[in-house]
Design a protein around this nucleic acid. Structure first.
Lengths: 164, 164
DNA sequence: CCAGATTTCTTTAGGTTTCAAGTAATTGGC
DNA sequence: GCCAATTACTTGAAACCTAAAGAAATCTGG
């Protein structure tokens, strides 16, 4: 028996609709929350999300990071980071210097001003996020963490298998 | 012991790190999968993710949709949709016409070519997604669906509360 | 009927993003 | 030492995206 995809189905030859719906729901959640954070960052601090994200990476590492490190951690392209850093150095939030050991490498760090501004934003940001997830119980949070860890591992395995 | 308004035990001042970590993990999963889908769409069909997403919306509604509908469903800005549609009409995937009933409204639909191409891509896409979530058990999938539904509701409530 | 509000879409300006190609510096094999 | 491969970053072109302002059509309350 074949039913349409709205109800439920045992289709030939295999049934993958559940995974697709799961992916769409995951995407919806992320888009929703990301849009909310983006709006709040703009209206409250007049800063874009990519800038905030980059500063967040740097705040964790006082001694600084290379552009490649940032690129990997943020999961965006190298060229993207170059432009982002450019604008943040320009606005005085970042300090950039060529490595002594390897002159190909650029090490970037938060300036004093950059760090202070970031900390202020981060404190509020944490409250927004807590509010966004406010209806989840501590158990829900733990369970989601566990399942997303499993999802991440599965996705990485799949990506790696394709790449080679 | 300090209790908040909902009678849950809390620490001083408050501890929101778990929610933040959950958000970062959610974002990581989505970015990872989205990047994978983006790569595959490009190398397999030479198409971008936004184009695929737009066609996916239209495939569900043969009689077509207005630009506003698309904008709401995709959760992107109006101006964004205008440009996307522009390029897809240009490439012959979309048909666009002004509504007879309301001349402000543009109704867009997949062309025959657009639909055929999309169906071909969608079939493979579904397999990729199944593979990405391949290590999750059916129970994991159900549980994730449930928790993400709860998350979505919570986030929407939070966004609505802010907007007024 | 009609002026003001609303809705739908486009336009504009400024960023963000990817990919591909290119440059400069370093590393490793011989 | 030398040359090829690799690594780190930049550049350029095209697309994507948002927010805000604007234009056109429609709706609404007198």
């Amino acid at each position: 028996m074949i039913l349409d995809s709205e109800t439920k189905a045992v289709e030939l030859p295999e049934h993958h609709g559940d995974e697709l719906r799961l992916w769409l729901r995951l995407l919806t959640c992320t888009t929703l929350i990301e849009g909310e954070v983006r709006s709040r960052l703009r209206e409250r601090f007049d800063v874009t999300l990519p800038r905030f994200d980059l500063m967040a990476q740097l705040d964790k590492v006082p001694e600084g990071m290379t552009l490649s490190d940032v690129s990997k951690r943020m999961m965006v392209s190298n060229g993207n980071v170059t432009g982002l850093v450019e604008r943040l150095v320009e606005s005085g939030h970042l300090d950039r210097r060529t490595s002594d050991a390897d002159r190909r490498v650029q090490v970037i760090r938060l300036t004093k001003v950059g760090r202070a501004e970031f900390r202020k934003m981060a404190a509020e940001h944490e409250l927004w996020i807590a509010d966004v997830f406010g209806d989840l119980t501590p158990k829900d949070v733990r369970e989601l963490m566990r399942l997303l860890a499993k999802t991440k591992a599965s996705a990485q395995k799949s990506a790696k298998a394709r790449a080679g």
